[in-house]
Design a protein around this nucleic acid. Structure first.
Lengths: 144, 144
DNA sequence: TTGATTTTTGGAATCATTCTAAAAAGATGG
DNA sequence: CCATCTTTTTAGAATGATTCCAAAAATCAA
């Protein structure tokens, strides 16, 4: 499965906008993230990317992920001291970490909630980003 | 400056409740956290603790911090991939990370906001903990 | 005090991530 | 297409916060 016309354009545009080049590796890594939106770690992305591109190196996967985050196409999700996870969902959303399965779910954040969140900041604090994450028992542990 | 009567009681009670022992090291580390509520890292706690107890080891500081977190007296605050920070403020609150100074501020969270937060979770998700953090330019960078 | 259990300790080990420096690939201007 | 300049990739080494280890010390209960 290849990057859709649309995703491919979005990628090269975002790269060029940030003064970076479009490469096979970056396309492939982006593709992997779009294929399965299950918040993989860098290691998992590495494994999946190698299926299509067996010679890619782990360092490159880290580089590509960093690049994608920098040019705004991907969000890096950190939780406790666990390895970073990567998520191509750019809509404002929170994350739910299931303590039983380790799975991470995207939780939609209505814009009125977003507003009330930044409202808690006292005078003089100017938030660029807001991170909201939950930890607990999620949906149905056994299945997908 | 010694642990106040009250704090000392709270500590040993919390420890006993969790089946753990009260030790000089644990008291001292707790004390350090209470003295300056500026969200120190383990290294910083180590440095401060050694001023009163020069022979304590870094491993012990990590152990003590973990113990304090486990028995519910201290909150471990993680942000991006930076070293963990420790905070003895148990009231529900968010954290603001200043990108300019690296300083971390506690932000009070009104209970109605807390409620609306857990309200965003779909059926079947049961949150044990909620983490909210902001990143941006905070108050007056030079002083305080 | 005695013995059982927990804690402390210094140093080694772990492990995600970053760095390094050389090779490869992509862009640019003729 | 060629020469050149810049960016990217790559393998492996280095980093750094944290955890693990096994022995010594401290605490607890009887």
């Amino acid at each position: 499965m290849n990057l859709s016309e649309h995703a491919s354009k979005a990628l090269s545009q975002a790269l060029v906008r940030s003064g970076m080049r479009s490469t096979r590796q970056r396309e492939q890594v982006f593709q992997v993230l779009l294929n399965r939106r299950d918040h993989p770690t860098a290691d998992e992305v590495y494994a999946r990317t190698r299926m299509e591109m067996p010679t890619i190196s782990l360092a490159t996967v880290y580089n590509c992920l960093e690049t994608l985050v920098e040019c705004g196409l991907v969000r890096q999700v950190n939780w406790e001291r666990e390895p970073s996870r990567y998520c191509p969902n750019l809509a404002p959303h929170a994350h739910f970490h299931c303590v039983e399965t380790g799975r991470v779910y995207d939780i939609d954040l209505p814009s009125d909630i977003m507003k009330s969140l930044t409202g808690v900041l006292p005078e003089g604090f100017d938030a660029e980003t807001v991170e909201l994450s939950f930890r607990g028992k999620g949906k149905c542990p056994p299945s997908g």
